[in-house]
């Protein structure tokens, strides 16, 4: 399992996959992609890494306990809905702000985006939790 080639490849692949996962997450609202796919992609990166280097190394690189990642993700998704409840709107009503970025055009930021980030983190955390746990029983 722990062949040199795999290790080297994974070491290169991990940052790439992470970057790609963020890209998928961010473009998801307008093109195929989104929090799920992004989260899965990020997790796949770490899964490969942990197969190559062992789960303890992967955990060390990750720094944060994947269980907490789940909690944070859920909390983020939840609070994007809660915000609107405070604004006297039904739960999960989308609220949008337009940011002007000068020459770059304008960026639309909305609560659904936060929601999607929450999804991303949860999916990531869950997948990692499962993979680490399965690996560590062996």
């Amino acid at each position: 399992m722990t062949s040199l080639i795999l290790r080297t490849m994974v070491r290169l692949l991990l940052p790439l996959l992470l970057l790609f996962s963020v890209f998928l997450l961010l473009r998801g609202h307008n093109e195929p992609g989104g929090g799920f796919v992004g989260g899965l992609m990020a997790a796949t990166g770490f899964a490969l890494f942990s197969i190559a280097f062992g789960s303890s190394t992967a955990r060390r690189i990750l720094q944060i306990d994947p269980l907490v990642l789940i909690g944070v993700g859920l909390l983020l998704a939840l609070s994007s809905g809660l915000m609107t409840l405070l604004l006297e709107q039904p739960f999960l009503t989308g609220v949008w702000y337009k940011l002007s970025l000068g020459a770059l055009g304008k960026l639309e930021l909305g609560t659904p985006l936060f929601f999607d980030i929450g999804v991303y983190l949860t999916v990531w955390g869950v997948t990692l939790t499962i993979i680490f746990a399965l690996e560590e029983v062996g």
Partner: peptide
């Protein structure tokens, strides 16, 4: 405010499902 309708359904129209 989204062009990917499936994703918009997931995070907005039917966000509760996704939650």
């Amino acid at each position: 405010h989204g062009r990917n309708i499936v994703n918009v359904i997931l995070v907005d129209f039917r966000g509760l499902d996704t939650l």
